[in-house]
Amino acid sequence: MISLPSPQQLRYLVALAEQGHFGRAASACAVTQSTLSAGVIALERQLDAAILERGPSKRPAFTPLGLELVARAREALSALSAVAETAQSAREPLTGPLRLGVIPTIGPFLLPRLMPALRAAHPRLRLWLREDLTDRLGEELEAGRLDLLLLALPSGLRGVETQVVAEDPFLVAMPESHRLAGLASLPMGSLATERLLLLEDGHCLREHALAACRLPAARAGEGFSATSLHTLVQMVAGDLGITLLPRLAVQGGVLAGASLALRPLEEGASRTLGLAWRARSPRAAEFRGLVEAVRQAVETGG
């Protein structure tokens, strides 16, 4: 009969791969470094496999087999968590901790409306928040450190199930003295000759805005970019160019302190807001149950 690794041994292995340091991995597992090291050595003996390369480096170096075992360990720990989550979800849906990841172009503008609504509707739900870019949130979701993501679709993430929440139209923001400010709405073609300022690479809003307006990536900003929507607004206020802002951010106060003109696009352009969770998550029904609450929070900003 095959001797199976314990969940604790798998946690040690995954933590060591994620932290890249024995001391930090031990701290993440709330054990001493010697305990973690002994656990990994015991796992190697139990599996009769070399997981780590032995050498002068103090940093853990995984063998090819070790890297494959780390991936398998993540899957196994996720499956074990799903057993407990399934039981919890069946007993009391939308109670206990829920770890929500949200992108920076949504979180500050929607959460002030969404959080009170969720607290009122689900008082026993404990919401933990993490704000980051889509790719990093996806890594956290895959690793099981997040349960649910609130982002813009398509996300490009693999192994996830998604649910559309709402459309978030783009508005063109420009200085009040700009030549296009005299128009009630702008044709899409009017953007082609303008200096278009957008967020820097890595922010999905950049790609979604360009795709929605059918603009080539090379046209965006001509070397100018910002790290946040608030910075972008100040750049436009400084007459460096024009930009595209999601209506959600405008309703959430991103223009505070800046005098800009806002105009819709005649053809219409928007990004899609949605929720994402691990495919086959036992809590999928719960997450789908949150869609209406998020949609109402988006709509109340209008």
Score class of each variant (00 low, 15 high):
residue 67 L to I: 10
residue 263 R to D: 10
residue 266 E to Y: 04
residue 209 A to F: 07
residue 168 D to I: 07
residue 170 F to T: 06
residue 255 L to S: 04
residue 290 L to C: 03
residue 70 V to D: 06
residue 268 G to L: 09
residue 94 L to P: 02
residue 196 L to R: 11
residue 80 L to H: 11
residue 234 Q to S: 09
residue 158 R to D: 12
residue 149 L to T: 06
residue 254 V to F: 05
residue 111 L to S: 00
residue 279 A to Y: 03
residue 39 G to E: 07
residue 95 T to R: 09
residue 279 A to P: 00
residue 76 A to P: 00
residue 52 L to I: 14
residue 236 V to A: 01
residue 71 A to S: 15
residue 198 L to S: 12
residue 69 L to D: 07
residue 261 A to N: 04
residue 232 L to E: 03
residue 22 F to H: 11
residue 263 R to I: 09
residue 137 L to E: 02
residue 200 E to I: 06
residue 75 E to A: 15
residue 245 L to N: 07
residue 279 A to S: 12
residue 58 K to T: 15
residue 183 L to S: 10
residue 274 G to R: 08
residue 27 S to M: 08
residue 12 Y to Q: 01
residue 168 D to M: 02
residue 118 L to C: 03
residue 127 L to I: 15
residue 217 A to Y: 04
residue 109 F to W: 14
residue 86 T to Q: 12
residue 294 V to E: 00
residue 283 R to P: 00
residue 219 R to T: 10
residue 216 P to G: 07
residue 257 G to L: 11
residue 234 Q to I: 01
residue 230 H to E: 15
residue 59 R to M: 11
residue 199 L to N: 08
residue 197 L to C: 13
residue 136 R to E: 11
residue 249 A to Q: 09
residue 123 P to G: 03
residue 111 L to V: 12
residue 107 G to A: 15
residue 122 H to E: 08
residue 273 L to S: 02
residue 122 H to N: 03
residue 72 R to H: 13
residue 164 V to W: 00
residue 154 P to I: 06
residue 252 G to M: 10
residue 242 I to D: 02
residue 110 L to I: 09
residue 94 L to E: 04
residue 210 L to I: 09
residue 174 M to G: 02
residue 185 S to G: 06
residue 205 L to Y: 05
residue 76 A to R: 14
residue 210 L to W: 06
residue 42 A to L: 10
residue 240 L to D: 04
residue 275 L to D: 03
residue 146 L to W: 05
residue 292 E to K: 01
residue 240 L to P: 00
residue 282 P to D: 02
residue 129 L to S: 02
residue 129 L to M: 14
residue 281 S to A: 13
residue 297 A to N: 00
residue 60 P to G: 10
residue 33 Q to F: 00
residue 175 P to R: 14
residue 125 L to G: 03
residue 206 R to N: 09
residue 22 F to K: 01
residue 102 V to G: 00
residue 88 Q to G: 07
residue 128 W to I: 11
residue 65 L to W: 12
residue 22 F to S: 04
residue 149 L to C: 02
residue 52 L to Q: 10
residue 295 R to H: 04
residue 125 L to T: 09
residue 157 L to R: 04
residue 235 M to P: 00
residue 49 A to V: 15
residue 136 R to N: 14
residue 128 W to K: 11
